[in-house]
Computed example of a mutant assay.
Amino acid sequence: MKEELDKAEFGMFPAQEHCARRLYKCFRKSGTSDLSDMLLSLILLCLLDLVFLENANMYKLCQSSTMEFYYTLCYERSKPIISIEPCASSRQQKMNISLTWIPTMDLHRLLLTVDVWYQSAKVSETRMDICTGVDDEFDFCGKLKGETVHVRLEKGLEKFPPVKGKFTANFNLYAGEEEELVFCATAIGILMI
């Protein structure tokens, strides 16, 4: 296994995808049909992508003889504390995943999107309303900006196919009625079983 993963293997970062969508919406709203303006903006966006890829920090979550987990964040200013224990790929054993985070916005309405890729093929696309303001399942819903959020999940690998290889998951968290991107991360899991 390579000591250092190639950052370009992540594909498109969620922040750039979000930025491209917002740029497209701006052009649509303004009624601009000038392709040269649009092309210039897209070129600038691509240049910013190159700068971002060079500066992205990759963090190791866990490493064992059967698996490795890494992640990178779109916004370093909102860096959460994440842990996975035990770092094992047994289908019978559950992993405890914990996250501690101080949000930079109120958590009244939250939408999470998760795209999962195996090697270079998209295998799952999920969109979940996490906080709606009515009978929310999670106790952090309703927390205010600056309050510490603790999340603890127990998950297993039973949903993953029993294959070796690299899984990549892009997590995007949107807040408010305008669905503003407030947190995003890309996680890589390498199964060696």
Rank of each mutant, 00 (worst) to 15 (best):
N96G: 06
E76R: 06
Y24P: 03
N96L: 11
H108Q: 11
K94W: 01
F13T: 04
I82H: 01
G133N: 09
D115V: 04
G11V: 01
D139L: 10
Y71G: 02
I188H: 02
D115Q: 04
V182C: 06
L111R: 08
L173I: 06
R21K: 11
V51Y: 10
K155W: 15
V163A: 12
S89V: 02
F140G: 05
A88S: 13
S120L: 03
V151K: 04
K143Y: 15
E54I: 09
L99V: 14
G189W: 02
R109P: 04
E85M: 09
G133W: 04
L23M: 12
E154G: 10
C26A: 11
E54Y: 09
L112T: 04
K7C: 02
L61E: 07
S89Y: 09
K2P: 08
E17I: 02
L144P: 03
I81Q: 14
M192V: 07
V123L: 04
V149L: 15
F13S: 00
C26K: 11
F10V: 01
S33C: 15
R22K: 14
F171A: 06
I81D: 14
L45V: 07
M67W: 09
G133L: 06
E158Y: 13
S124E: 14
L99K: 06
S124W: 05
G156D: 11
L153A: 06
E154N: 13
V51P: 00
A121P: 01
C74L: 02
G189Q: 01
Q93D: 12
Y71E: 00
K29W: 07
D37C: 10
F69T: 04
D34H: 06
R152P: 10
T132V: 08
E85G: 11
E3L: 08
C141D: 09
C74D: 08
Q63Y: 15
F183V: 01
I43P: 14
V182Y: 10
D106L: 03
L112H: 13
K143M: 12
C62E: 00
G146W: 08
S89I: 02
A121M: 09
K60N: 15
V51I: 13
I188Q: 05
L23D: 10
L48P: 01
E179Q: 13
G189L: 03
D135C: 10
T104F: 14
N172K: 15
Q16Y: 06
E9G: 00
Q16L: 05
L157H: 04
L110S: 03
C74N: 02
F52H: 05
Y70G: 04
P80E: 05
A185K: 03
Y75M: 13
R109K: 15
Y75G: 07
V123A: 00
K79F: 01
Q63H: 14
Y118D: 05
Q93A: 13
L5V: 06
E9F: 04
T113Y: 08
L99I: 12
I102T: 13
A175Y: 05
I84K: 10
T148K: 15
F138L: 13
K145S: 11
I97D: 04
D135Q: 12
F183E: 04
L112K: 09
Y70F: 05
P80C: 01
E17V: 00
